[in-house]
Design a protein around this nucleic acid. Structure first.
Lengths: 226, 226
DNA sequence: TATTTTTCTTAAACTAGTTTATTTTTTTGA
DNA sequence: TCAAAAAAATAAACTAGTTTAAGAAAAATA
């Protein structure tokens, strides 16, 4: 899963629609003319994805945008509250994306091993998550901004897809972390109108519990208010 | 949440990169020159999203691509196993997307009320879900294909975002539907290598249970094998 | 408005999963 | 290679959530 799209943009920037940002690319390309062998694993990855060899300028672009990093075991790459987190391609090792609840308990959302991507698609917004290494790892990272500059022209569609993804991610997290009672409370606060319109058994199903148990929760809530 | 991108494409098709598909659009436009007032709710929606009036040709395009449907209460719009499901914009009413487990138990994934989108982003692949109406509803639907023809040029990025979404959706469904034991079994079959590399407490966290409980599950499994 | 159907409540016995604590096994690193 | 630290197993008492079933309340419909 995740996004392997660099080469696509490499192609896109050659179309007239992208002429406007070419000055930015030349700037990028003029830096770091060194260390071509640096990113061989990323080159391999894209050559596999696109089933052809990369051109020199494509290799140069990858070299300039990606940053090679070595991550120690248990090293935290980014944490909750950070903005502008990067996307990570794992060359070697094992990373995990997780969330920590109020009691300090951790819930893993996603793992990534060799040749997989990991990160928070919600970036550049503030992340809820932590990313750390389970094994000593070598990764290639790239900022969301570097990718977005190339994608501004169709950001509308992508941003809506992203929103859908983030919504689902939040729901998964709620169900992992909270009790049904807490999730009900959250729903009541965020969607009071919807709650009024939904038969109770549909709410219980959304919360992942039986109608009988939701009824118990509500009876308990009503008792508390007296 | 979901995707409101039509107007974006209306703009895109005017760029040189999209000249190649303009013949398709003329074909589309030549049909159904009637019933302009048909889609007013969709017009309003896009005018709100883009904060400007729509042109006549934009309105015509919307009219031709979207299909107005009236859905009776409890009417099933699509069901598990169907391919090429449509995307639905709710003009009036209340829809739900849900999944049914082997015992026939239903789990709601998503609701949509007025001015929200609902559907299965996995389309045109076979869907796992059911979509039906909780209230009598009026919707505007559009095929994934109609949208994809306009987006082929950047499908690589979009398809990867979609895959990420679908992956997460499956995980949510598993956690709602299956016991921790069943989810462990699924993980063991689909990712045996990963399982070997992960410390047990990380697996338990991914499954949404405590390490103690996962240990119980494993002890039980080991006992069974004797 | 009376009747039928659907939804909600309550209860009781049950199962899945948690918590806390102790012991054993495995891994790490000097 | 040996000590220390981390991970896994086990036990026991607990809580969150399920199941089945029956009755009450609310909603739909003739």
């Amino acid at each position: 899963m995740y996004v392997n799209h660099l080469l696509f943009w490499v192609k896109m920037i050659k179309t007239p629609a992208f002429k406007g940002i070419s000055f930015f690319l030349s700037l990028l390309l003029s830096h770091f003319k060194s260390a071509m062998e640096n990113c061989t694993i990323i080159f391999d990855y894209y050559e596999r994805v696109y089933d052809r060899a990369l051109t020199d300028s494509e290799r140069e672009l990858i070299n300039n945008i990606f940053r090679r990093e070595t991550i120690k075991k248990k090293q935290i790459i980014f944490g909750s509250g950070e903005i502008n987190t990067r996307h990570y391609f794992v060359a070697k090792g094992l990373l995990r994306l997780y969330v920590v609840d109020a009691a300090g308990k951790e819930f893993n959302i996603l793992f990534a091993i060799e040749n997989q991507w990991i990160g928070d698609l919600a970036t550049p917004d503030e992340t809820l998550f932590y990313l750390d290494a389970i094994e000593k790892s070598v990764v290639y990272s790239v900022t969301d901004e570097n990718l977005n500059i190339l994608t501004n022209n169709f950001s509308s569609f992508v941003s809506y897809l992203k929103k859908a993804y983030i919504f689902l991610q939040k729901r998964l997290v709620s169900i992992l972390i909270n009790t049904a009672e807490e999730n009900y409370e959250e729903l009541r606060i965020s969607h009071p109108e919807l709650l009024k319109r939904l038969p109770q058994y549909h709410i219980s199903s959304y919360l992942g519990v039986t109608p009988v148990f939701l009824s118990k929760i509500l009876a308990k809530r009503a008792r508390k208010k007296d």
